[in-house]
Every structure is written in structure tokens, then in C-alpha cells.
Nucleic acid binder design. Structure first.
Lengths: 355, 355
DNA sequence: CTATCACAAAGTTAGCCATTTTTTTTGCCT
DNA sequence: AGGCAAAAAAAATGGCTAACTTTGTGATAG
């Protein structure tokens, strides 16, 4: 089996009886080609099944591509930190092209911050843009309109917006992910009367779309498969550490019959660490959370968290960049939607989860 | 942030006060370079932080690389079919290089077939080799010795051999994988007195190393965490369809108290389909098996198999090729061992498992 | 003591292939 | 035939490799 593209522009030119310059003009849809020549070239391209050599192409064109990303501000050990890492990995992988990269970060709790940052981004005149999640449809819409007006291609990460036309979306199907969470926790909690749903929030802000959808999927599964199980909610503001302690203490004292709990974001380690440190004699509570951030991985390894659902944030970033470059630089066709795998991590397999 | 390598060989040559030819000689470790020149070049490389442009390099070297793979014969819908697909994907991804690829298939039930095929492979004079699993250490060893004698680099897929020195190994940590299987099945079977272990064999042959190791991991976990659960073994020769039916019928009639079963290879669909077709009124048996081959995926979707453990065969193939090319063609450093993720698939998340 | 040779070391340059720019040719009209 | 636009051909470019060429050193013989 031969996997090689030996057909060169020169071969096309010979076959079509024209010069390489003409073939190039046809390939790039430029002017100054007679209809006859264009047709001959196109026939030759098809007949010889021409595949461009991207190495040579990149070398010759010698353009500089400016790629911008707009993502939420975040902590060092977080989902978004890994997405950024993935983006950078992706860019490094394409470092043989001349790529200039700039990241713009907005305060997810402040809409005007997003507007300020997108303006800075547009002023930088990027070639392509990667966009993270924004809750507010209107400001997102305004930004996307501007991009489309300027014909700047963009990719979405994490949050899918069916009404827009990105080159690609990378993220998890949150509803299915919530169903999967329900299946797993209920397998461990078979027959349990009650399970705890912890709503861990930062700075009093509403949860993300992803989290809301996970809960939708979760409740859907529960209604169908375990309608008899009561879901006991407990809200917590993670930045109010004293408040968290008090509420959890009262929660676990009140609900002595709860041995299973989950959360739809990456803060499950808060519950695990509380139980470890503040109620060490409390019976084991099986916990399920999201995202393989360091704090959670530690808890998985010491057994205080039993399950994590992961979604390959680095791979999301990397693949998003890859797709953008494939589409915009190399002019490959791309699929729009890329739903990431819904991975279950436990103590037994977490060592092999490499993002 | 700028991700681009603007430092060229020419720049290095100027900085070091030598010609580009000399820099090239140093970069490729060729002869005819004085110690002084080599040192000057190496200093310049470090100072300017040189990163080679692989596009240009590939273009210039214009070699034809012959890559051979030696893998077991297999059915169309199987683990190995996907590994082969991954290998081909990988080669396609590097189609800007001139790569010629040939696959040699041996009969896994016949050692001399392996020897015949490896001889054909060596006669083809490949540049690099990808090797699948062989049970017999001695014939493997003989082959590897020949490769090392001829300085042909090789990669291992599926079976790891610590005594050899491949460029890379891709596969799953089978022991851990068995532990994970135990954890999952016992979560569903919490408190069960008995579970079934189906040993599904093709053509009366012993199981693969991988399967044996999975069982080792499984039993280790069971002894530690569920010593009270009895593991009831049942061997089956899948090509003897009548025999399989009879044995299974007698098995499930005898063991009316078994509601959970697993198998360490990809044939779990045999059990699922038997229960569906031959004993439709039998209570649900929770089944766990390996590998997302089509037959198993169908069973996951109709609920007759509950869990599959997957190991990304396509990714193994693809990554193995990638690593071989990175190491041998692009001269990147590579890690030796690449343990694939141990993925749990259920009806809820299988749609997002794309290999 | 120098001419010759072998060989190591270093330099030079023609590709590799797609793109872009410049130059040349062609075709058409006046 | 001259002028001009349109199209084709040719040459230059990019970073790297490898074949080829030149330079330099030391050994040996005359």
C-alpha cells in the first residue's frame, strides 16, 4: 500500500498542457485564466487526484497568521487553565507556520468586561478567533455579528450556540453527560432513598449553561429510572469558607441517611475535603463530580471522591486550534460539531487519563 | 504571545561563523566536523534557541520511508481491524512525506506463520516496523534481534515486552484494566454472592497475554474488596456455535442466582445475544466486556450489555505511527511507554466515544 | 625541502514543491 | 506594423538536505 501524494503541480500542468503558474491561478481561484485553460486544469486535477503538499505550501506562502482567543478569567488549577494549555499545545504543533497568538480574558461575572475585551480583540485584527462560554446571548450575538461582518472565522469551546455559524464547536453534550452522571451514581446508590446534589457557586453567580444542562440530563434520568429517590439540594458559596463549613455540618447532621452526593462542576473536592477534615468519623459518602483538576484528582486518589466525569479540556483546546488551522490555513473541510467523550475516572483508571 | 520559529539554519551558520552545510552536519550528527566547529554550532543553536522547520526539512530530504506492520489476522469487525485503521489514518496524516506502507499478517494460532511473515517483512527492507502481540517469547525475541541487528526501529502495539527496546509501546495496562473491570462490575453487583466469568476462546487457543493480565488484575481486586463473592468460570469455544448454546443454557439453568457476568475479550456479545435470543424470559444479567467493536456496541445500545471497557485501538495505531515518524523521521524525542486511557462505555456515553 | 597524495573538514549549490513576482509571448484591434 | 491587454512562461522565494567541490592538513617519497 502506498500512502503518498506524488502528484505535483508540475504534473498537473503537464497533463493540462499549461504552465504551473496557470495551475496555481486555478487552484487559488485567481483571475487571468481563460475558460479553456481552467477547464483543462480542473480535469487534470481530478484525473490525477491531486493533493496539495502543505509543507511546500506553508513554506512558500510564508504568511503570518494572527489567532486570538477570548476566554473567561480563571484560577491556575481549573478547567479553563487546561483549555488554554491545549490551545497553546495546538499552536506549538503548528509552529512551522508563522503564528502569532493572543489571549483575551474577561470576567465571567461582568458582561461589560466581555465587551471591552472583544473590542480589544477586534482591534488586534486577528485572522481567526476561539470563543469560550458566555451566558448572555445578546452580547455574544453582538460580538459574533462583528466577526461575521469582517469575515473572521471563529470556533466555539464548551458552549454550543446553534444559532451561530462557527467553523467548529468543541465541548461535551451536557445533557447526556448529566444522564451518565445519574447512571453512575445510581449504580453505586442502588436503592438509596436520598442523594445529595451540591450546588457549588463562586461569587454568588448563577451556574454556567453547561452545569444547568447537566442537571437537566440528570433529573431526566432520575425521573425515568429512579423516581423514588429524593434529590436533596444544598447550595454553597465556595468563597465563603466559614459558611460552607457551617452549612455542610448542618447538612450532614440533618441528613444522616445520605451516603451519596454529586455536583455538576469541578468543586466536588470542597465536599470531600470537608468530610475528611471536619467529620472524619462520618460514614463514607460516595461522591461524584466533574473535571480532573488537581484538587479533584487528589481526592480520587485518597478515595474521598469516587467518580469524576472528565471532558478532556486540553484536547478541546488542541482540537479547536487544529480544526481552525485545518479549515482556515489548509482549507480542509471540517465538521461543525465535535462532542467530546464523556469519561469516567476512578482510582483504578485515573493514572491513565492523560488529557 | 508569539509561537513561531524565525531562527533559520542560515542564522545559526552566521552566528557560529561556519557554513550552512556544517550546521546541517552537526544537526544530523554526521562526520567531517571539527570539534571546534561543532562546539561553535552547538553554542549558537542553544543561544538562538533553534527549532527546525520540519516542513522544509521534509521537503528537502525527499526520502521514501518504508514502514511495515506485522499484526495478527483478524475479522472485519474486530479490535485489530481498528488498529489497522488507525495506522492508516496516521500514515495519511503524514502523507506529505513519501511513505510506503506494507502490512504483514500472521496466523496467531500458528507460530511458524509469524516466522514466515517476519522473513517477508525483513526482505522488504523497511525503514521502521510496527509489531502486534505475539504470545511466544522466543520467536518474538528472534525477530527483534534481527531488527536490532539491522538497526531498524520498531514500535509495539498492545503487548508490552519490558525486555526489548522499542521506540514506543502503545497499549493498555491490562492489570489495572482488570481492576477497573472488577470495580465497575462489583458496583453493579454489590453484595452478590456469585458472578460469572466467561472465557471465550477462538479455535481452542489459549487467551492472549492481555486477557491473562486482565484476569490477574480482576482477581487481585476481588480478593481485596469482595473476597466473599464467588467467581464462577465458564469456558466457551465461540466457533462451536452449537456447543456454546448448550453450555450457556446449562450454565444459566444451573446458576439461577447469577445476575452479573464479564469477559476479558471482545466476545461478550456472544453471551448477550444468547440471552436475548435463547432465554428471553431470563432475568437481566448485567454484562461487562471489552472493546467497542460493532457487535458489542449494538448490545450496549439495546441494553443487553451494560458496560464495555475500551482502549482506543485506532488511537493506538495512529499514535504509534505518529511516534515512529516523530522519532525516526523528525528526530523528536519520544517516551517509551504510552498507556492508553481505560474508558468505560455505557448506553449513555457510547455515542461520544469516537476512536 | 618540496611535490604529491590521501583524507578530513568546510564551503557551495542544486534541488524539494508551491507560491508570488517578473518577464515574455500571444492574440487582437487599429 | 504598432500598441496594448491578456495569458503563459520563467524566475525567485522559502528553509533544509545532500551531493558535489574546494580548502587545508599531515604524511610520505623523491
Amino acid at each position: 500500500m502506498e500512502i503518498q501524494s506524488k502528484v505535483r503541480i508540475k504534473d498537473i500542468a503537464e497533463r493540462a498542457g499549461v504552465s504551473v503558474g496557470t495551475v496555481d491561478r486555478v487552484l487559488h481561484g485567481r483571475t487571468n485564466v481563460s475558460d479553456l485553460s481552467r477547464e483543462k486544469v480542473e480535469r487534470a486535477l481530478k484525473e490525477l487526484n491531486y493533493v496539495p503538499n502543505h509543507y511546500a505550501s506553508a513554506l512558500a506562502s510564508n504568511k503570518i497568521y494572527k489567532i486570538a482567543a477570548i476566554l473567561p478569567m480563571h484560577e491556575v488549577d481549573s478547567y479553563w487553565a487546561r483549555v488554554e494549555q491545549g490551545l497553546e499545545d495546538g499552536l506549538r504543533r503548528y509552529s512551522d507556520f508563522k503564528i502569532s497568538y493572543q489571549i483575551f480574558r474577561y470576567d465571567p461575572f461582568n458582561d461589560s468586561s466581555f465587551e471591552v475585551q472583544t473590542q480589544l480583540l477586534l482591534d488586534w485584527e486577528p485572522f481567526a478567533v476561539v470563543i469560550g462560554p458566555i451566558f448572555n446571548y445578546n452580547i455574544m450575538s453582538k460580538f459574533v455579528d462583528k466577526l461575521e461582518m469582517s469575515e473572521i472565522p471563529y470556533g466555539l469551546i464548551d458552549s454550543n450556540w446553534p444559532e451561530f455559524n462557527p467553523v467548529a464547536f468543541y465541548g461535551q453534550d451536557s445533557i447526556r453527560s448529566g444522564e451518565f452522571a445519574a447512571r453512575i451514581i445510581m449504580m453505586a446508590a442502588a436503592g438509596a432513598k436520598k442523594i445529595a446534589l451540591f450546588k457549588l457557586m463562586g461569587e454568588g453567580r448563577v451556574a454556567s449553561r453547561q452545569q444547568l444542562n447537566r442537571e437537566v440530563g440528570f433529573r431526566k434520568y432520575m425521573e425515568t429510572h429512579s423516581p423514588e429517590t429524593e434529590i436533596v439540594e444544598q447550595s454553597l458559596y465556595v468563597y465563603d469558607k466559614v459558611g460552607v463549613k457551617e452549612r455542610l455540618k448542618s447538612f450532614f447532621t440533618t441528613h444522616k441517611d445520605i451516603y451519596h452526593g454529586l455536583s455538576f462542576n469541578s468543586s466536588i473536592h470542597t465536599i470531600a475535603n470537608f468530610l475528611k477534615n471536619e467529620m472524619p468519623r462520618h460514614p463514607h459518602v460516595t461522591l461524584l463530580g466533574y473535571d480532573a483538576i488537581d484538587a479533584n484528582v487528589t481526592c480520587i486518589k485518597d478515595g474521598s471522591v469516587d467518580f469524576l466525569i472528565a471532558q478532556h479540556p486540553m484536547r478541546q483546546g488542541l482540537n479547536c486550534i487544529r480544526t481552525m488551522i485545518n479549515a482556515c490555513v489548509l482549507h480542509y473541510k471540517q465538521n461543525r460539531n465535535h462532542y467530546m467523550a464523556i469519561d469516567l475516572l476512578t482510582r483504578e483508571n485515573i493514572d491513565f487519563y492523560k488529557d
